[in-house]
Amino acid sequence: MRKQLPPDMLARDSRFVRTSIMDQVMDPRNQKIGERDLGSARLQPERPAAADRARNLMHGIFTGEIQALEGAGRTTFDFDDDEAPFALKLDMARQCWDESRHVEISVKLGDWMGTEIGEYSEAVFLYEAACAPDPVLRLCGVNRALEGLAIDVFNTMKEFGDSSGDPVLEFCEDWMLADEVTHVKMGSDWLRRMTKDDPERLEKALEFQRTVDKLFSLGGFRGETEDNPIQLARNFRSMAGFSTDEIDEIAELAAQAKRDAEALVAGSS
């Protein structure tokens, strides 16, 4: 088995259909929909098509958890003992189990909400963050950026479950949220330990994280305004080791990502 498995080699059964983020960005409807006033984009039961939007997001969580599982798994394998400390690999193996459980939870929640496996297309940009050749960059991409996004998504879903009175959704998301806070904290701790005497490597890793965080903001998918379906979960991020400055930076990156997407749509018209 090779080291460094590219995203196009992720193995899936016949139910899964892959899409690229460019399909979404270049969708000709983007500009037209921008002309409509759809109101708040936040995922709430009162919003139009809330059930289908929640199902769509649930499937996105499901495929995201598969990729997080694969990313953690690859980190146990891709690096030799001299590249990644033994304890780091143990943490990644633990994360594999957690992500595996998250996939199981997501499948059960999909059943509960009436979503079928493979019903929605899968983009693999989450796994792409797990392909960095430096384990420190990978930790930033996976544990701080991807798992940080997971905190935001799970908190949004938990709030949706809470406000809609769905006991199953709220229960499951709260448990997964607990795991994700652990994973982000794990990433924050390892980042500090592995770059303690290497400020250059630290800066490179943080720069990589900024890039990934901007990508994960997906042109306004995440943020802190009513325009963002996924809300930045400040309190849980803080619990996971993010400083206020770091959270502010992610909020700004998200806003920038939205502006970039709007400019891209305007430019393509």
């Binding site: 088995m1 498995l5 080699m9 992720l10 193995a11 899936r12 059964d13 598969i66 599982l69 694969e70 953690a72 798994g73 690859r74 980190t75 146990t76 394998f77 891709d78 990644m92 193996a93 594999c96 189990w97 992500e99 595996s100 459980r101 996939v103 199981e104 496996i117 796994y127």
Partner: peptide, 18 residues
């Protein structure tokens, strides 16, 4: 851990992760 990404069977993938 490395094989998780290389097996298409979902149940096998999850068992390998565990």
């Amino acid at each position: 851990g490395g094989w998780v990404a290389t097996v298409p069977e979902l149940d096998v993938k999850l068992v390998l992760g565990r």
